[in-house]
């Protein structure tokens, strides 16, 4: 397959950035989007040009490192996939594909398609943890948890923190990410100790980082590679209100 790529190139944080066009030929329809970028970069390196920088690690949709807005969609067309799981057969042969980094104030571009997502880490430091006695492995059945609750918590825990929710949101809101993290721990007995402070502190940090307000467009849920439900945003709101009034 052949494609014309319009890729955002930006030297560093302070560079203004611009789109550059590249032609790429004979790409396998089974290649992932990242593999296609590898092929492009090999060609660029051979020509002595600077390769396109992009984040990646596991390349099997579980690490949350990759993330590119492709043709106006976070992680490209398709549902429930990360950029590494996007195959080139999803595009028309000869198509022009536009690739841009996540766009949000709290995610400044470091280089080309790579953004700084440490704002998510700082939200996690604020409350995304539990206090527990470390040491020996606890008995798996020591704390009984009903199956539906465990399932709901697991669905929230599926969040890989890629930031697609922020990238897709017209307001650059991080409510789905924070909602998933708060939900996961609020549902389980282990998360009860810091339950109140967690909701308050994580929301406070989210606001301090400059993320926008959720306007319930639910673009986040549609673009989340782990298909995390906006019901977790409702739970975050509930947890926040609960923490404020009790």
């Amino acid at each position: 397959m052949n494609f014309t790529l319009k890729i955002w190139r930006q030297k560093n944080k302070n560079d203004k950035g611009r789109f550059a066009s590249y032609e790429i030929r004979d790409v396998s329809p089974d290649a992932s989007f990242l593999e296609m970028l590898d092929i492009l970069n090999e060609g660029l390196a051979k020509k002595g040009e600077e390769p396109v920088a992009f984040d990646h690690d596991c390349r099997e949709g579980i690490c949350g490192s990759c993330g590119i807005v492709i043709d106006g969609r976070a992680h490209g067309p398709g549902r429930g996939i990360a950029t590494c799981e996007l195959r080139m057969r999803s595009f028309r042969d000869g198509a022009t594909i536009v690739a841009e980094p996540w766009r949000a104030k709290p995610f400044p571009v470091i280089k080309d398609l790579v953004v700084d997502r440490t704002s998510f880490d700082r939200i996690m430091y604020a409350g995304g943890y539990i206090s527990t006695k470390t040491g020996g492995v606890p008995d798996g059945n020591a704390i009984p948890i009903p199956k539906p609750v465990a399932e709901e918590a697991m669905d929230a825990a599926a969040c890989i923190g890629c930031g697609a929710c922020v990238a897709a949101c017209p307001n650059s809101s991080a409510m789905l990410f924070v909602g998933a993290k708060v939900s996961q721990l609020a549902l389980l007995p282990q998360g009860q100790v810091e339950r109140k402070e967690r909701a308050l502190r994580m929301v406070e940090q989210m606001d301090a980082e400059g993320f926008g307000n959720c306007s319930n467009t639910f673009a986040c849920e549609a673009e989340c590679p782990k298909e995390i439900s906006v019901a977790h945003i409702a739970r975050l709101n509930r947890e926040f209100i609960r923490a404020k009034v009790t």
């Binding site: 807005v69 106006g72 969609r73 766009r103 104030k105 017209p170 993320f211 673009a219």
Partner: peptide, 15 residues
């Protein structure tokens, strides 16, 4: 909160 607008942004496909 948005740093720069996307060149292509297909919000209408999801919302």
């Amino acid at each position: 909160s948005r740093s720069e607008n996307y060149k292509v942004y297909k919000l209408q496909e999801n919302t």
